[in-house]
Amino acid sequence: MQKFFFNRKLVIVIIVLIISFGLMSVSVAVRNKKSTPPLLQQFGNDVAGAVDRVIAWPVNGLQGASNSVSDLLNTYQENQKLKKQVDQLAQAKVNAQTATAENKQLRKELKLNNSLTAYTAVTANVLTRTPSSWMNQLVISKGATAGIKKNMPVMSQSGLIGRVVEVNQTNSKVELISSTSSSADKFAIQVTNKAGSTVNGIVTGYDKSTNLIEMGSVTSKTKIKKGDKVVTSGLGGVTPKGLYVGTVAKVKQDDYGLASEIEITPAANLTDLTVVTVAVQ
């Protein structure tokens, strides 16, 4: 151990630490810029992604198999429950189809080509999750070649789960909404109550202990009740309008008692993700 404190070694250690810290600072600073990561890094990530596909495939297959078994065990109860819903859904579907057709026609007459709600869905597999307690990130199997760009919203089958933070050619990184990093820019969302009036706001945080999304600093007097639906509002950015986020769990006063804070039960399960959808505008 005495050798460690030799002058030359100490200098080397300090230089290595400075280089390491410099690299980290630069990549943190560059991370939030619009431009995608540098080409060399993209190339490295694409190669790593290609190798990862080979290793992730059997592991994900194993997960699929175990999910199938547990699905099979619950089939009977689920079937009973779903049968009841199917009848209602058929009617709702027909309604929706007529409304969509009408909407399309009206839009054509008004010459509105790009509205807030229009997007195309790109489906991707989840390759891995970052093995770190500080980052809730996924790597998904589609990248710039599939039209994915930075900051696009990502959904699972049931609802919003996060946004794209880094795009390579054939894979990209997704930051989950449960991420607490200070630099994460948040979603614009709106709550619609039973009477049809809406409250706009942004996602301000995520309560890990209860698994609830927080929407803070709400000063609107509109009455919001438990169970009201929350969707993205489409304001200010690349997120389209009308992506399902979840339902209101409770409304409470914030810490200072001036504004209220709405807590939202997310529709998606953030710990069981195999296939995700990116909303490309």
């Binding site: 390491s20 980290m24 990549s27 943190v28 990561p37 890094q41 490295g44 990530n45 770190s132």
Partner: peptide, 16 residues
């Protein structure tokens, strides 16, 4: 280095 690039996007941490 691969860990930093591929998983976290923040260089120079696991690499050292």
């Amino acid at each position: 280095l691969v860990f930093d690039w591929y998983y976290t996007g923040i260089l120079g941490v696991y690499m050292v």
